[in-house]
Amino acid sequence: MAGWNAVFKREFAGYFATPVALVFIVIFLVLAGVFTFELGGFFNRGQADLRPFFDFHPWLYLFLVPAVAMRLWAEERRTGTMELLLTLPIAPFGAVLGKFLAAWAFVGLALALTFPIWWSVNFLGEPDNGAIFSGYVGSLLMAGGFLAIGSVMSACTKSQVVAFILTIVVCLVLLLAGLGPVVNFIKGWMPAGVVDAITGLSFLTRFENISRGVIELRDVLYFVSLMGVSLVVTTWVLESKRH
């Protein structure tokens, strides 16, 4: 893992060296706002909570997070800097981890910048701040899961567009696996065990649990192990291309 911090530092600063950071953060905040207030009916519900805010996060991440993740490795491969990075005395997993954590910290920063909405809801009423905190934790974990999958896809190709599309597809499958209509559809003809396994894989089910204020160890473990496995797979993909 040696050297991960050097990679982290470079990558995190890298987001701000280009318009990527600004564009991403602005779009994320605008869309989060639009979804919460327009589609989510934040005011009309008359409830002091952030459910409409968090409910749209999976769909927001579905498109925005792959855009962050797509460049992780595809870009290195295209510009040839991969050769430089992997011949520095850094463990490959260290480089994978450093890049992932930088991307995660960056998305985390964008998420943190939604604090005015938390402030508003506290101004308007008396929300359950524990549930809101839990929602933020769930949202961050889910973003990490999306990013880790994006990291694998980005390692597979030197085309950022291909990485972007693959990531969206895989993440969409993982999201839909827990969506009501899909669950009802497969319930009809699949054994209960399989249905449970499929819904168990879903981001949505896990995220909904956490965002309702129930931080359960197994849900947290799900996201953490998803990230761990994805990063190991990323390293493995990179290594396999060195033969």
Partner: peptide
């Protein structure tokens, strides 16, 4: 190859860190 968005200064600092 070098990271196009970086300056030589920050690039060399990164290599030293690594």
């Amino acid at each position: 190859p070098a990271y196009p968005d970086m300056t030589p200064e920050s690039f060399l600092a990164f290599c030293a860190d690594a």
